[in-house]
């Protein structure tokens, strides 16, 4: 176990963490703001990459391809939203249905192949695992993705401060009150799901470029990684600042921590096939901690007044 091997792997882990950080910001919108667990993202985390890579292979620019990936994700969110609101299917089930359907759609997009490779030498990719070291900083993947995250956070910060954004937040906080205040909660839920899945698909488009291929299994367990990032970000940075922009940034930082920890675990000799099990256990543990804390370790609250003799 040479420590130098670990250090060599860290920039790559950082870049992956940042890309998944964008994805996790998407998950944050549904899980934290709308109070829905949206499993659609396991499908959209592949759809975005498939759309992006196939469009680039067909000669479109990386910008147009990423925008189309975003739109494809929004459509997936729309489907889940309609399943959930208009058709009354519980949110988790609605997400699972869309995710399952997307598996076929994703294969169709990739021309019935389970993956589509794109060469970094022949195509003008925005980011790549080859652009981590030995490139000028403005071409460096870590730099570019970090800039994208700052722009994304700025846009979301603005959006959730608008009338429409506030309506989405109040829908997640109290749907009954929102309807009493004239908010169409079906519409705001659909809008939130579309925005979330659009962002996830955009991250997927970046991730496929980073890896150099789109893969039909790219999204398997994506929701768990997204949740891990949200929860780690909250646990580590939650006490520092309650500002919304900072919360989004801490989600991205949570994703980086997640990937750095994974890298260390791999370096310690864990088989990469075991990672999903590890991820699931880590997220289960973090979700369980608040519950167990409240149940078994709750300190009796001291009320005012003299103690009983």
């Amino acid at each position: 176990m040479e420590i130098i091997k670990l250090f060599n792997a860290l920039p790559g882990a950082c870049a992956q963490g940042l890309i998944w950080g964008i994805m996790a910001i998407g998950v944050y919108i549904t899980y934290k703001i709308l109070d829905l667990a949206d499993l659609t993202v396991d499908g959209t985390m592949c759809t975005g990459g498939a759309v992006c890579i196939v469009m680039m292979l067909n000669g479109h620019s990386v910008g147009v391809s990423l925008v189309c990936a975003f739109i494809a994700g929004m459509l997936a969110g729309l489907v889940t939203g309609v399943f959930h609101t208009a058709l009354g299917i519980p949110a988790i089930l609605a997400g699972i249905l869309t995710q399952l359907g997307l598996y076929s759609v994703n294969l169709r997009i990739m021309g019935n192949k389970s993956n589509q490779a794109i060469s970094v030498d022949k195509y003008d990719l925005l980011i790549s695992l080859r652009y981590i070291k030995d490139v000028p900083f403005y071409k460096n993947t870590i730099f570019i993705v970090a800039i994208i995250i700052f722009i994304l956070v700025a846009i979301l910060y603005w959006f959730f401060g608008t009338e429409l954004g506030c309506a989405i937040r109040s829908t997640g906080s109290n749907p009954n009150m929102s309807r009493a205040q004239g908010i169409n909660t079906d519409f705001t839920k659909i809008l939130g799901l579309m925005l979330s899945n659009g962002i996830v698909a955009f991250a997927s488009g970046l991730y496929a470029q980073y890896q150099g291929f789109a893969d039909v299994n790219a999204g398997r367990g994506a929701i768990v990684i997204g949740l891990a990032a949200v929860i780690i970000g909250e646990v580590v940075f939650g006490k520092i600042n309650g500002n919304f922009a900072f919360k989004l940034i801490s989600v991205a930082l949570g994703a980086i921590i997640y990937y750095l920890v994974l890298q260390v675990v791999l370096w310690l000799g864990l088989n990469s096939n075991d990672l999903k099990l590890l991820s699931a256990l880590v997220v289960a543990a973090f979700l369980a901690i608040p519950h167990l804390k409240g149940k078994y370790f709750a300190k009796p609250v001291k009320k005012g007044g003299a103690p009983r003799a």
């Binding site: 429409l164 929102s178 205040q181 908010i183």
Partner: peptide
């Protein structure tokens, strides 16, 4: 809405019946 500020709650209420825009 418990997770929102007092003024945000009031702003939501004062836009009741209006189209919510950007």
């Amino acid at each position: 809405a418990a997770s929102m500020q007092i003024e945000e709650n009031m702003a939501l209420a004062s836009r009741r019946g209006m189209l919510r825009t950007l």
